[in-house]
């Protein structure tokens, strides 16, 4: 595995420069049911296909970005800074 990710600040870098932060999923609201919380804490969708995920550029600018990647081919379609108020 040695594909390239385009960091919005640093440019194309090897995937090993990043720490994988998991798939992007919404955090339940404070009053949500136990089932929703368990699902959030322990379950993953784990798509075979396009997914949006968190990446931390630990060897570079040390910022969190989001990446849209096809998990079958490792083709990275898009990378961007997290949008404001979009958690």
């Amino acid at each position: 595995m040695s594909f390239l990710l385009r960091c919005p600040h640093c440019g194309d870098r090897s995937v090993y420069e990043f720490r994988f932060g998991g798939e992007v999923k919404p955090r339940p609201a404070p009053g949500a049911s136990e089932e929703e919380w368990v699902n959030y804490a322990y379950n993953r969708t784990n798509s075979a296909g396009v997914q949006t995920e968190w990446c931390y550029h630990r060897s570079g600018c040390r910022q969190w970005i989001k990446a849209v990647r096809n998990t079958r081919t490792n083709e990275v379609l898009e990378t961007f800074y997290p949008e404001e108020n979009a958690r």
Partner: peptide, 10 residues
């Protein structure tokens, strides 16, 4: 400027 690992150090 750029940031990267150099001799395994940020």
């Amino acid at each position: 400027c750029g940031q990267a690992g150099l001799a395994h150090v940020h």
